[in-house]
Design a binder for these strands. Structure first.
Lengths: 343, 343
DNA sequence: CTCTAACCTGCACGCGCGTTCACATTGCCA
DNA sequence: TGGCAATGTGAACGCGCGTGCAGGTTAGAG
C-alpha cells in the first residue's frame, strides 16, 4: 500500500457523504440532512440525495455519527450461561425490546474472561447504557460503571451494596407460594435444591420457602445445591433421595434441575410422582409444560421483567436521572401434574 | 443546554487523551502510544500515563479509534430463534470464539424486523465482518453484503446462488447415517419429520435419508413438517402416528421435535420405544442424553463448526481474500436407547 | 414594487483518536 | 569531544458526520 493507499484493495475506497453530495450536486450538509428526520430540506433535494445514495450504495456511518452526537445508540449486555435456555430466552427478549426502540446490542460473554475485564471494554465502545442479565458484578466494577455516568440495570440480581438499579422477579414470593402449595398438598419432608450459592435469586427462593414453612411450623428437611445445571442436579437429587426417610417433596431453584430430579426419581428410584414425591421447578420454561414432565413451576414473567428493564434503562437514558430504582415483578405458580393439590 | 454545553450534566465532561496527557505531563501522542502495543515509548512514560489514566477513569474511545483505523473491531451477528437452545448455544460459542480473538459482537435479532432491514443497520455500524447463524438471506441482501466488501460467513446454511461463504454440518451425511441405522434396526416404515421448509439443513437431512433408503430399496413412508418447534412437532407426530399402519421409525430434523414425538408416542399412543417405534433426533443436544429421553441423535459438532466459521471469517478479514469457500463438518451418530441396534 | 418572514443551503468547526513528520533529546562509539 | 544512530516529542492533519450560523432565495403581504 502506498502512502495514502486504502490498505489492500485500493479501489474499494469507502464512500462518504461527500461522494454522494458530489453526485447529487449538493453540499455535504444537505446529504446529512436528507438522512436526518425532521431537518430542513426540500423534498426535491432529499429525493436527489437518496437516489445518489442508492446508486453509490451509501449509508451514513453510524460510528462517525456517534462521535459528535456523543451517543452510540448501543446498549451493552454482558451475558453468561447461554447454555441455560432461560438465559438465552432472556437475552433474546432483551435484544428484541431494545431493537424495537432503535438501539443496537453490543454483546459480551462472561464465560472465560471475568466481568472485571469486560466492563471497561464495553465502556470503551461508548455504549449508552448497560444491562446485566444474571451476572455477578464486583463492587469495584460497580463503581467504575457508576463513575462512567452511564445507566445500568441489573436483571434478576441485586447487589448487597445498593449501587446499581435492578429489576427482579419476586423470588422470595415465589418461594413462599411453593411452600403454601406443598403444605396444602400434605407434604412435611420438604427439601430445597438450590442453584448457585452466590446468586441472590437462589438464596431468595430458598429463604421464601423456609420462612413460610416456618409459619406452618415446619422446618426445611434437607438442602442440596444443583448449580442450576442438569449434571449437578442429578447428583444432588441422588443425595436427597437416598436419605431415610426420603423427602416427599423437592423444590428446585430452576426447571432444569427439577427435570433432573424428576428423572432420578422415576428412573432410578421408581417413585410415583406426585403420589410419593412432589417436584416443583422454577421459570416455567417451555419443557415444563411438555407431556412427559408436566412440571409444576413458578412463572416469573420473563417478558414483563425484560420490558420493565428496558423501559427503566431508556428512561434513565433520556432523562439523565441517576437515582437508584428497584423493581420487583410478581411471580405466579403454575400447577401441573408433578404436585398434588390436596394431602 | 447552552451553545457549547455538554447536554444535561454539564459537569461530566467526557475525558479524552488530552486530559490524561496534561495530568501525566506528556503529549497526547504519548498517551496514544501508551495504549498502543508495540509503539515507541519508554516503560517509565507508559507507567506515568497509565497511572494518570486510572486516576481519571480514562479508557481510549474505541469509536473514535475505529474512525481513523477504518475498522471497528466489531463483528455483526444476526441471530434468530434463540428460544431454540441449539441456536442459543451456537450464539454463545460464536461470541466466545470471537471475543477470544479480541472482537466485539454487535447482535441483532431477526424475529420481528426482517433481515433486509437489519443488514444495512449492521453495515452502518462499520462491522468488520458478518456471521449469519441459521438465517435465511435474501439474494438482494447478499448482493448488498457483497458490495460492502466485508467478509460474510453463513453457518449451517447455504444459498442457492453461490455468493456467500459458508460452514455447514454434513446434513446430508447425517441423514444417510440415520438411514443406515434404521434399516439395520429392521425398520421399513420410516417417516421424516422436517424442520422449516426453506432451510437447507432440513432439506439436506431429509434428502440424505431418502437417498440412502432408496439404495436399500426402501421408499420414505411419510413426511410431515414440525417447523423445528415443539408445538408443531406434537401435531406432526399425531398425524404420523395416526396412520394405519403407523410408521415404525421417525427421524426428526432436530432434538426438540424428537422429544415431542417421543412424548406423543409414549403418553398418547402408549407405544414402546424403541420396540414399537424408533425415534432419532438431530443436534445431540443436552436433553437428548437425559435418562428420561435417551434419544439417539446426530451430533454435528457445533464447537467445530463455530471454530471453523470464526477462523474463516478472521482469515478473510486479515487477508482481504474474497474468494468463496464452503466447509463441511462431518456429523456423527450417537446411538442411545430410543433406537434398537438390530432388527 | 418593497419589505419581511419563512425557508433552504453551504461553510466551517468540532467530536477523540491514530498517524505522520520534522525536530529535540539521549546514548554510544570513535 | 564530535558526530551519528536510536529513541521520544509535539504540532498538524484526517477520519465522516452533525450542526450553529450566516447568507441566499422565494413568497406573500402591504
Amino acid at each position: 500500500m502506498d502512502k495514502k493507499g486504502r490498505s489492500v484493495n485500493g479501489s474499494k475506497k469507502t464512500i462518504g457523504s461527500s461522494d454522494v453530495a458530489r453526485l447529487a450536486g449538493v453540499s455535504r450538509s444537505a446529504v446529512s440532512r436528507a438522512f436526518t428526520p425532521g431537518a430542513y430540506i426540500s423534498p426535491e433535494t432529499r429525493q436527489r440525495v437518496v437516489e445518489a445514495a442508492e446508486m453509490l450504495n451509501y449509508s451514513p456511518n453510524a460510528i462517525a455519527r456517534s462521535l459528535s452526537k456523543k451517543s452510540s445508540g448501543l446498549v451493552g449486555i454482558i451475558a453468561s450461561n447461554l447454555d441455560n435456555p432461560y438465559y438465552a430466552l432472556m437475552l433474546s427478549a432483551l435484544s428484541s425490546a431494545l431493537q424495537a426502540k432503535g438501539y443496537g446490542i453490543l454483546l459480551l460473554i462472561a464465560e472465560l474472561d471475568d466481568m472485571d475485564a469486560l466492563i471497561p471494554k464495553l465502556l470503551s465502545y461508548q455504549v449508552d447504557g448497560v444491562i446485566l442479565p444474571a451476572a455477578t458484578l464486583s463492587s469495584k466494577m460497580a463503581v467504575v460503571l457508576e463513575r462512567s455516568g452511564r445507566p445500568v440495570v441489573l436483571v434478576n440480581r441485586y447487589l448487597q451494596q445498593d449501587v446499581v438499579s435492578s429489576v427482579s422477579g419476586d423470588n422470595y414470593g415465589g418461594g413462599t407460594a411453593v411452600a403454601d402449595l406443598l403444605v396444602k398438598g400434605g407434604h412435611r419432608r420438604i427439601a430445597y435444591m438450590a442453584g448457585l450459592d452466590d446468586t441472590s435469586s437462589s438464596r431468595d427462593r430458598g429463604q421464601g420457602l423456609k420462612d413460610r414453612l416456618a409459619t406452618h411450623g415446619i422446618a426445611i428437611y434437607a438442602q442440596e445445591a444443583g448449580q442450576y445445571r442438569h449434571v449437578d442436579a442429578v447428583a444432588a437429587a441422588r443425595r436427597l433421595l437416598s436419605m431415610t426417610p426420603a423427602p416427599d417433596a423437592i423444590f428446585c431453584a430452576n426447571d432444569i434441575m427439577a427435570m433432573a430430579a424428576l428423572e432420578v426419581a422415576k428412573v432410578e428410584y421408581g417413585l410415583k410422582v406426585p403420589a410419593e414425591l412432589a417436584i416443583v421447578g422454577y421459570d416455567n420454561s417451555d419443557p415444563a409444560s411438555w407431556p412427559l414432565h408436566q412440571l409444576t413451576s413458578v412463572d416469573q414473567h420473563l417478558e414483563d421483567m425484560v420490558k420493565l428493564s428496558v423501559e427503566m434503562l431508556l428512561r434513565k437514558l433520556v432523562s439523565g436521572d441517576t437515582t437508584l430504582e428497584h423493581l420487583t415483578v410478581p411471580a405466579s405458580l403454575v400447577v401441573r401434574a408433578s404436585t398434588r393439590q390436596t394431602g
